[in-house]
Amino acid sequence: MKIDNSLPLEYSTEENRLKILGFWIFLGAEIALFATLFATYFTLVNRTGNGPIGADIFEVTPVLIETILLLTSSFTIGLGINAMRHGSKNAMMVFFIITLALGAGFLGTEIFEFKHYVHIGAGLQVSAFTSILLTLLGTHGAHVTLGLFWGLFIVLQVKKRGLTPETTNKAFIYSLYWHFLDVVWIFIFSFVYLKGMM
């Protein structure tokens, strides 16, 4: 394995560079996926049948908590990558664990929010609007859930194997994924919740 020492560890081998480009392209596909879900949401948002409209069911508090938790986690994972570039394994692990904790907090709040929707009669089957609302939020939530496990695996590997070209590559790609989920959430926050509550 040829290691190019002029580059950060995560970019240092040919294989690593391929993986990073591949993941960027995967994120392109993810953008197409969420764009389709958003387009479907905008198509169905006013098709509420006998069910509630957005303004009836959205609550500011949990949404704000979710937003703050996820945005902060995007910042802490950035700090984690910065620590990784400086070669301090422990600082990186601490920031990654904080990120995962914030992510878990986000997920917990979202589960609470979902239970609330079902409770007040805005379940998955009620109308086209509730179907796509919960599917859009749920797809994002499923991504976060997967990300929690993925991040946990990476922390375990860094702990055991240290900062190697492989582990830093995984951690860097994971950070791209996590930032992406944050970007999607900003769209959800603006175009689902804010627009819905206005």
Binding site: A32, L33, T36, G49, L124, Q125, S127, A128, S131
Partner: peptide
């Protein structure tokens, strides 16, 4: 990815009773 979403919504309509492509409830 568009097909992925379309098929997922179809699956949910057929298996979980959602209302994406139905004739009722919007």
């Amino acid at each position: 990815p568009v097909l992925t979403v379309a098929l997922a919504l179809m699956t949910m309509d057929r298996l979980f009773g959602t209302n994406f492509f139905t004739m009722a409830n919007g």
